[in-house]
Structures are given as C-alpha cells and as structure tokens.
Amino acid sequence: MASSSSTKLVFFACCLLLFTLSDNLVAGESDKVQLNLYYESLCPGCQEFIVDYLVDFFDTDLDTITNVTLVPFGNAKLYDNLTITCQHGEEECELNKVEACVINTIPDPKLQYSLIRCIENDTKNWDSCFNGNKDDIAIGDCYTSDLSTKLILEYAKQTLSLNPKKEYVPWVTLNGTPLYEKINDLVAEVCKAYKGKAPLPKQCNSSALGKRKVWSKLQVSYANEAIHY
C-alpha cells in the first residue's frame, strides 16, 4: 500500500513539474502582447507588411508572446444603408470578404496567416492559393453567403470605433496603442511591450535584434493618397 501511494505521489509531482515548465515556456493568453493589423487587401503597404513583416511572428517563436489579429476593412467607407465602398475598388471589397472568411473559418493562426499571406503575395492570382480542401470549401461557402457581409460589417465597426482613430493603413496597434512610425521596428516594440512571466523568445535577444533589418520606408495609404515615412 505504501509503495502504491509513493508511486502516485511521484507521478503527481512529475505531472505538476511538467505543467509548471510548460506554463513558464509559453505565455498565458492574457499575458500575450495583442498586435492588431487594420488593413485592406489591395493597399501596397498592407501587402508588404503582411508578406514581409508579419512573417516574423509566424515563422519564429514570437508567437509564444504575441496574439496577432487581422482586421480587413482599412480605408473603406460605410454608409448609412450599410453599403461599403473600398479605396481600391470592388475587387478590394471582394478580397476583403475572402480574407474575412479565411479568418472566420480557420482557427489556427499560422494556417490562417499562411493563406492570407499567399493571397496578398499575388492578388492577381489569389485563387491559386486554394486547392479545394475542406477548409477551402467552407471559405467559399462563407464568401458566397451573407456571412461574408456580416463579417465585414463587424470589421467596419471595429475599425471605425478605434480610439485614437485610424489615420492610414497599415494601421498597427499593440495592446490598443497605435505604433505610428515605430511600426518600422515591430519586433523590438513587441519584445518591449511584453510584460508576462514566460521567457522572452530568442528573437528578443539584443544580439538578434541588432542583426535585424529595420525598415526605413513603409508605404502607407490615407483615404485619398499614399505616402512614405
């Protein structure tokens, strides 16, 4: 009996240790830095940001301290009758819907981002990113139904209720605070913003940050023009 009890205690202690180690390696959801990207599908700066900037958060261990949320509405205009017009025309409105359906259908952030990155990398041939699997069919069903419009209207509400208001796209916030020109060194800003207990990812080491390319010019689009800063 004593031997059995001892075995159970040792097993329990091992489980507790594993749980504690796991908890220390990955930040809890409430501890993670919340990175929101407000964008539109055919904005050149948004495309560059998604393809070249955001990849750091999905191809490295930065995802252990960061939640990334994509909001595809951008500089579109919403009228009282719920009509939406997009800065780059109807094609952009349709692609915004496609990407809204991707976000709604695929729960895994890395798979979600991978598909949106594929679309943004070649918006002329975006349909080549789909191969007819189960998720693709669900995304198509979403796109052709009223759900896609409902999703975009929700993204419109989120974008238009920002405080402070969005000035251009891509518009990036960390824990609700706009980055403005600090967007050019996004990884460093995320590392600085993280206040959780989990160890910082290796990408946050000073040596790693020192080797990173800091983007000097990211094109941003206002409602009626595009500029560089």
Rank of each mutant, 00 (worst) to 15 (best):
S128G: 00
T60D: 09
T7K: 15
C101K: 03
K165S: 15
L70A: 01
S145W: 10
D108F: 12
N121P: 00
V68E: 01
V190W: 01
V190L: 05
L151K: 06
Q158N: 10
L37M: 09
L111Y: 08
N81G: 13
I227M: 02
R212A: 07
L82C: 10
K166T: 09
D108C: 05
N121C: 00
T149A: 10
A193P: 05
L70G: 02
F11D: 15
A223R: 15
D127R: 07
L54D: 04
I84S: 06
C191K: 01
V169P: 00
S207W: 06
Y180T: 03
T66N: 01
V26Y: 10
E91A: 10
F49M: 05
Y229I: 07
V220L: 02
F19L: 12
Q47Y: 04
S206P: 02
E92G: 04
E189S: 14
V26Q: 08
V98D: 01
S216H: 14
T20S: 09
Y38S: 08
L16C: 12
S5W: 15
E189C: 10
N67S: 06
C204Y: 06
P170M: 13
L62M: 14
V190K: 03
T144R: 08
L18S: 09
P201C: 11
N125Q: 13
D56C: 00
F58H: 12
S22G: 15
T64S: 09
V68G: 03
S207K: 09
V187F: 02
